[in-house]
Design a protein around this nucleic acid. Structure first.
Length: 885
RNA sequence: AGGCAAGUAGCUCAGGGGGAGAGCGCCAUCCUGACGCGGUGGAUGUCCAGGGUUCAAAUCCCUGCUUGCCUACCA
């Protein structure tokens, strides 16, 4: 079989491009709409169209690709649905910044032209991340790529909006919302980030209208007092019992406001009295609704004091704060100031301080939807992995508040609501209406607002499959099998998909949710551009290759743990890639004249049997670990098998049979084993290292006719099970290791061939060692090996003990007695400690009475072993002492 | 303020009721016919502290300390 000669090392850059093109060309990523095979589907968490691949994406998509490739190889009709999110605020910001450079604003362009500009931007610069995902090796079905603003998905958005509206689950109302004065839009509670601020607490006195005294209130936002409409105290607060119902004069505004009682007020904070500004504080707003208080808005959408702010009109909120404080102080209303640390809400996009503001917005009445989404998890229809996230999920879902879905932006799904100028009728429809159904008037105005970006991503699992059309793909792939995402968007996205999926499809959007951790830097800090500690995944790919990078991410993804990434680790796995490459070079050399069709004469050798047992173990562990989303365990199992079992032992053990020409039959058998083990190893590794394995697979097969991608993932082979062979091999390996150990400790040159004696435990032990002695001779570099039962210990030897088997290594020339003495003493120390512990346990009456019988038996066996070892070592040591005297 | 997770070798972390593990690093040694991005051997631990359950605890429970995160946001 003529094969391509392997280069000195694997060249990732060239191979990755070539192989990815090859996969695309052959449509290996494409899923069938209908198929006899069972379906497996994952939808990608759609990256922002403005996005660049960061470590979070790299981790997230590597994990998805591992599972996708694994399932595909297991024979599932596997769909990994890709796409991007239009990312309302983020994208609008990008284009607005572009406009700013040109010296214009979006208002100069007008809505239509601006949106056209955004689309233009999207076509030109958007979706860089898609190509980056390709470099990561992602096997998404690109033929199905979707965008949250494309035609089909926009249709789905309208459909869902109208349904929710018609069922009374969407409503419009004046409520206090989180307003970003920079983005000029309302944002949801989730989009507010709280940051600690070292500020002050200002104490202000409000005098009673009847001049009977004063009441002191504390505030972190003195400027909002301009909009106060009450002062509240706790109804149980005896200090103020007789003050409730009285009026105070609001300083600076010179206005009468009432003192009310509400449970919300904590008695032991400050004076126990609190100023109420319903227009600028969510809690105060709620209280105003309970008490029918007047709601005054004093700050406008730009964060500027409006007409209601009296003399402070036109001032920025922070400027007004200074002035209000100064005036209060001058007029004797300021009691005092104390330093105070509190949290200030900021816009998650632009970090501007949020201004709670009353405005007319659209909301989703969320409780009825949440109820079902909670039930889905309770009933186990959706499994959250790791399970510890369930508590967080329930806690949030049980306390969920209505979702503000309108945004005062231009880029996004415009709310499908029209107002008739003629009769005032509100029309909510999936298709643009041309006249009013009520009065027939044609003057219709569409609502100016767009929907929260997360509204369309909440529909992602079914909208991408063609809903509301009844497509074959929808039928085949919904509910999807698995969602893999970061825990940071559990509420933003996962919970909302669950609510919408159940509401619209009457079925959960996915069966399993795997939440992975965050990627941090070496110090454990969150990576961010502003901190300058972020590592560019593409740089890592360029430097170490995609396979090494992916393997690193998998290896460090333990459930519930953050990934602390350091380039050194990636380098370590690059070495692993190199190791595999070199092992392949050796293997392919051995298989140069391999003929699969030739019948076998010789039976499997011991290493042949053993490596298949180990391969079986690796297969079982990889499958089990991946089924349970234990990526680190799966990668560790492959790593251990390839490096420490295949390379360290099997390839070394079988060198003689491959290099030697004296036993062609045995060689053929070994070739078959090696061929099978090697190809199975590649398949096991493929989900983690797609490029390297595809390259080697094609070289092994001598053609690119069949991709490793469409080969069947390995399964445990019952015919390979062989406990006897495993034990026998382990014995041989232990003997080899013991001799090497003595060599190392006694400083015997590796080149020096040794004559070793073994005292076998019994006849069977003797026979098996003799049968397998060639392995020992080779790997321990011996000149000869003599095995006898109950051999008398020769003079001038170093001794090692394995159970009842004793190994004597003659020390050539001048025996370094002190070194051997030290070595034996060290060993003896260890054994005597073990022996002590073990015998103590066994002499404990309670242990014998209560411990499980297998445990007792095991302990007894251990004790025997320890005793034998102890006696042997002690004997050897005594002899040595006598020798030295 | 509540909640969750974690504290194990120098570092990064697995594990998890019955003999303390891996990778990296470190030390020694080796140009053995795939690999020095390698081979071989070695050293290193009050498994955070205290208490409890148990025949047996690094592992389960409680308390505390430390760290990280999430949720809420009391003026």
């Amino acid at each position: 079989m003529a094969r391509k000669e392997l280069s000195k090392s694997f060249e990732p850059a060239e191979a990755e491009k070539r192989l990815y093109d090859y996969w695309i060309k052959n449509k290996y990523f494409h899923a069938q709409d209908t198929s006899d095979a069972p379906a497996f589907s994952i939808v990608i968490p759609p990256p922002n169209v403005t996005g660049m691949l960061h470590m979070g994406h790299a981790l997230n998509n590597t994990l998805q690709d591992i599972i996708t490739r694994f399932k595909r190889m297991q024979g599932y009709n596997t769909l990994w649905m890709p796409g991007m999110d239009h990312a309302g605020i983020a994208t609008q910001n990008v284009v607005e910044q572009q406009l700013m450079k040109e010296g214009i604003s979006r208002h100069d362009l007008g809505r239509e032209k601006f949106i056209a500009r955004v689309w233009e931007w999207k076509e030109k610069y958007g979706g860089v991340i898609i190509n980056q995902l390709k470099r990561l090796g992602c096997s998404c079905d690109w033929e199905r790529e979707r965008f949250t603003m494309d035609k089909g998905l926009s249709h789905a958005v309208r459909e869902v909006f109208v349904r929710l509206y018609n069922e009374g689950l969407i409503y419009q109302g004046d409520y206090i919302v989180n307003w970003c004065p920079r983005c000029h839009t309302a944002i949801s509670d989730l989009e507010v980030e709280f940051k600690q601020d070292q500020s002050f607490l200002w104490n202000i006195r409000y005098k009673f209208a009847d001049e009977s005294g004063e009441i002191v209130v504390a505030t972190t936002r003195p400027e909002t007092m301009l909009g106060d409409t009450a002062v509240a105290v706790n109804p149980n607060d005896k200090r103020y019992a007789d003050k409730i119902g009285k009026y105070v004069i609001l300083p600076l505004m010179n206005k009468k406001i009432p003192i009310i009682a509400d449970e919300y007020v904590t008695m032991d904070f400050g004076s126990g009295a609190v100023k109420i500004t319903p227009g600028s504080d969510p809690n105060d707003f709620a209280m105003a609704q309970r008490h029918n208080l007047e709601i005054i808005t004093i700050i406008d959408g730009n964060g500027i004091i409006n007409d209601n702010g009296g003399a402070y009109k036109g001032q920025d909120r922070y400027e007004a704060r200074k002035n209000v404080i100064a005036d209060l102080d001058r007029q004797g209303f300021l009691v005092g100031t104390e330093p105070y640390a509190h949290n200030v809400g900021q816009c998650y996009r632009c970090k501007t301080d949020i201004e709670p503001m009353v405005s007319k917005q659209w909301f989703v009445k969320i409780k009825p939807l949440a109820k079902q989404a909670i039930a889905a998890v309770v009933k186990g229809k959706i499994k959250i992995v790791p399970k510890s996230w369930e508590a967080t999920y329930f806690d949030w879902m049980n306390n969920i508040r209505d979702w503000c879905i309108s945004r005062q932006l231009w880029w996004g799904h415009r709310i499908p609501v029209w107002y008739c100028d003629g009769c005032g009728k509100i029309i909510v429809a999936t298709a643009d209406p041309d006249k009013c159904p009520e009065c027939g008037g044609a003057k219709l105005r569409q609502d100016e607002d767009v929907l929260d970006t997360w509204f369309s991503s909440a529909l992602w699992p079914f909208s991408t499959l063609g809903w509301p059309q009844k497509t074959k793909a929808l039928k085949t792939f919904y509910p999807t099998s698995l969602l893999i995402t970061g825990f940071d968007i559990l509420f933003f996205w996962v919970a909302r998909m669950m609510m919408m999926g159940i509401y619209v499809m009457k079925d959960v959007p996915f069966k399993d949710v795997y939440l992975h951790a965050l990627v941090r830097d070496e110090k454990g800090e969150k990576m961010s551009k502003s901190k300058g500690n972020s590592i560019d995944p593409i740089l890592m790919i360029d430097q170490y290759g995609t396979d090494a990078f992916r393997f690193t991410l998998a290896a460090y993804t333990a459930q519930g743990r953050d990934v602390r990434l350091s380039p050194e680790r990636i380098e370590g796995y690059k070495f692993f890639v190199n190791k595999i490459w070199n092992a392949s070079k050796l293997t392919l050399g051995h298989l140069d004249d391999f003929d699969e069709s030739e019948p076998l004469c010789a039976p499997d050798s011991l290493p042949d049997k053993w490596i298949k047992v180990k391969l079986n173990e690796a297969i079982a562990e990889v499958i089990k670990a991946l089924d349970e989303y234990r990526f680190n365990d799966a990668s560790a199992a492959v790593y251990r098998f390839i490096w420490h079992e295949l390379c360290d032992w099997y390839l070394e053990l079988s060198k003689p049979v491959f290099y030697g020409k004296e036993n062609p039959e045995q060689r053929k058998t070994a070739q078959r084993t090696l061929h099978e083990v090697f190809q199975t190893m590649l398949q096991l590794l493929h989900p983690f290292m797609p490029f390297l394995t595809e390259e080697l697979w094609q070289i092994l097969k001598g053609s690119d006719e069949n991709s490793i991608m469409v080969s069947r993932f390995p399964v445990v082979n019952a015919l390979w099970e062989d406990t006897a062979a495993e034990k026998e091999m382990e014995m041989i390996m232990e003997i080899i290791t013991s001799i090497r150990n003595i060599r190392g400790e006694m400083r015997i040159a590796p080149s020096q061939k040794l004559k070793v004696f073994i005292s076998a435990a019994d006849e069977q032990n003797k026979k098996s060692i003799e049968k397998d002695q060639s392995y020992i001779l080779n790997l321990a570099n011996l000149e000869s090996l003599k095995v006898e039962i109950n051999m008398v210990e020769p003079k001038g030897v170093a001794t090692a003990v394995i159970g009842a088997t004793k190994i004597f290594v003659p020390l050539a020339g001048a025996v370094d007695i002190s070194a051997e003495k030290a070595r034996l003493e060290k060993e003896l120390g260890k054994v005597s400690k073990d022996l002590d512990q073990c015998s103590k346990k066994l002499s404990n009456r309670d242990f014998r009475a209560k411990a499980a019988s297998e445990i007792i038996q095991k302990e007894e066996e251990k004790l025997k072993d320890f005793q034998k070892k102890f006696t042997t070592l002690e004997g050897a040591l005594k002899k040595l002492k006598g020798f030295s005297v």
